[in-house]
Every structure is written in C-alpha cells, then in structure tokens.
C-alpha cells in the first residue's frame, strides 16, 4: 500500500494534509529486521526516529548497567519509538529490539526532519505536538501499570 495512505493510520501525522504527509513520506527510509534484531542500542548516540509499520518491537531497559535487562513495553503497528533522540539528542534511553518476524519500520533521520521543519514550519509544529501527545500517552501507560 502507498506509504502516505498507511501514514494516515499513524497518529504522529494526525492533523496533516495529504500533501504534508507526502512531504514526510519522502524523507522516510524503510528498514526490515528479523526477530531479535537490534534496532537501536541503549547508551548509543541516536539520530533516528522509527515508525513501526509491521510487527512488534520490545523496549528493553537495563542492558547497559549492572541491573538485569527487562522489557518495559511492547510496541506494535502505528507506534513511534526512538523519538527522544530526535528531541533531546541524548543517548538512547533503552534498547529497541524486533520481536516479530519480520519487523518493518520507517526511519526518519534527525537532519532530514529538521530541514523539513525549517522549510515547512506547520509540519514541524504538528509533528512536535503529536510527539508530545504520544509521550504523554506512554507516560500514562506506565502510570497505570
């Protein structure tokens, strides 16, 4: 299916016109992972945001430290992950691991995203607002555990 149509089911793009979604789709790169494949590693510097298109990923905390690693949440289709690196440019706060065969993600590079936002500030505003809503939803999920 055409990427822009699929993106209409992703809340990161809620509020965008078809043309705006098309502009974001142009900076996305598809990546495929086998079950168990590492998408991003805790502690490493990251500059990519991932949109899960097919399958599930596990968010794993504690692989870097002395604590035993534990899966804190499983994320499925339509979810975004790795967004903190896009916002604060800090190291990855968790490992992201593919947990289904296959797992398909769309990747947005920070540099490409920032360039797009400078050209089209409305897209930047909508994405940043939707990222905040998504982070709020994840926080509420954690609070209700």
């Amino acid at each position: 299916m055409e990427l822009t149509k699929v993106f209409k089911g992703v809340d990161l793009f809620e509020g965008m016109s078809g043309d705006e979604i098309e502009k974001v789709a142009r900076i996305c790169i598809e990546k495929r992972f086998h079950k168990g494949g590492i998408i991003a590693k805790e502690g490493e510097v990251g500059d990519e945001l991932f949109i899960i298109m097919d399958g599930f990923v596990e968010v794993v905390l504690g692989e870097r430290g002395s604590k035993s690693a534990r899966v804190v949440v499983s994320l499925g289709g339509g979810q975004i992950v790795g967004e903190l690196a896009l916002i604060d440019q800090g190291p990855r706060s968790a490992t992201i691991r593919a947990s289904s065969e296959p797992t398909v993600v769309q990747v947005i590079q920070r540099k490409d995203f920032e360039e797009l936002c400078q050209i089209d500030t409305r897209i930047g505003y909508i994405v940043m607002h939707n990222l905040a809503v998504d982070l709020s939803f994840k926080l509420r999920h954690r609070n209700l555990e």
Binding site: G9, V10, D11, F56, E58, R70, V71, V72, V73, S74, L75, G76, G77, G78, Q79, F137, K138, H141, E145
Partner: peptide, 8 residues
C-alpha cells in the same frame, strides 16, 4: 510479568 503493549 508480561510488560504490556501499545498498538493502533
């Protein structure tokens, strides 16, 4: 001990 999920 299932960590739960978020999906659309």
């Amino acid at each position: 001990d299932n960590p739960g999920s978020i999906l659309n």
